[in-house]
């Protein structure tokens, strides 16, 4: 299994996602001879999983079933073990497009964190690009290296355990894009610039606080970056629900009511039955993510 190449069958050593239904998922590592406990019973890797197709329904020991899914970077983002705050797919999507990432791109990233964005970048730049990711926390860097190896993408990524603000990315003049998610990005802009190709490229800095953004923007300007642009993207999820709204009794005669049914003004009216109206609605959750961070993008111009 590799995160950058789909495959049909589940094999020993794969990372896979167990889908229990309705937003309930968790990742597993397939190991011949091992078992996984779910609320629907045990899954035996050797008999229930290995050799089956991804996307198969697997019956657990108690009779309930789960689906085994191929781990796309997006599913991984939803299931990975958190060692830090992570970036989610909404921000990742915009970062990927605005940094103009595509197969062959060379990207520098700091910090690696839990590797949520790293997996998405690697997926997009494979098979000919490369990610240089710098993490100042030793254990996190080591854990990331281990994960990349397990996910068979280690040939596409180099992890360095150093402080990007002091020592940079360890590469010069090769990056098409740089991404910064560090507490003081303004201190790393110079290093970012020198890591980038001479013909230019794109940079992005992610910061939760506007004060950080202000300092970063000033630093970007000082270093000659252009097209400096700060934006924020928020995901609005809608629950699809069938709603039954009661229709008030206004003392209208039964006859009149039926004639109203006859005219097909809208579906909702025609669905009026027994004093209620049925309709589908996209209902926003009562509480939702209101802020992740500001994304500041800029261009390093030619020469």
């Amino acid at each position: 299994m590799s995160f950058v190449e789909y495959k049909e069958f589940i094999e020993d050593g794969d990372t896979a996602i167990v889908f229990l239904g309705h937003d309930s998922m968790f990742p597993i590592t397939i190991q011949n001879g091992s078992q996984t406990q779910t609320k629907y019973g045990v899954i035996r890797h050797s008999t229930d999983l290995i050799g089956k197709k991804y996307g198969s329904k697997v019956i657990c020991s108690k009779g309930g079933w789960v689906y085994i899914l191929y781990p796309t970077p997006e599913l991984w983002t939803l299931n990975l073990p958190h060692r830090t705050q992570i970036l989610y797919s909404t921000d990742i999507s915009l970062i990927t497009m605005m940094l103009e990432l595509k197969p062959g791109s060379v990207v520098c990233e700091s910090g690696t964190g839990s590797g949520s964005l790293s997996h998405a970048i690697i997926r997009t730049v494979a098979p000919t690009g490369h990610l240089y990711t710098v993490e100042f926390h030793q254990q996190r860097a080591e854990k990331a290296i281990e994960e990349f190896r397990q996910h068979k993408v280690d040939h596409l990524v180099t992890v360095k355990n150093q402080d990007v603000c002091k020592h940079g990315f360890g590469v010069t003049g090769i990056a098409d894009a740089v991404f910064l998610d560090i507490p003081s990005p303004w201190e790393a802009i110079g290093h970012a610039k020198s890591a980038m190709k001479s013909e230019g490229g794109r940079i992005c800095s992610f910061s939760p606080c506007i004060e950080q953004v202000q300092r970063t923007c000033l630093a970007l300007e000082e270093h000659g970056f252009t097209e400096i642009n700060t934006l924020e993207i928020l995901l609005r999820v809608y629950d699809v629900r069938t709603i039954n709204l009661q229709v008030a009794d206004l003392g209208r005669a039964a006859e009149e009511k039926s004639s109203l049914d006859g005219t097909d003004r809208t579906k909702q009216i025609s669905a009026v039955q027994h004093g209620s109206a049925l309709f589908k609605s996209g209902v926003p959750p009562r509480e939702t993510v209101g802020h992740t961070g500001y994304l500041t993008f800029a261009t390093k111009s030619l020469f």
Partner: peptide, 18 residues
């Protein structure tokens, strides 16, 4: 199909000056 999600995104641009 599983994991069905209906969503939209909001996009907001900022003026950033000291």
């Amino acid at each position: 199909v599983v994991n069905l999600k209906l969503s939209e995104t909001w996009l907001r641009n900022y003026q950033v000056l000291p």
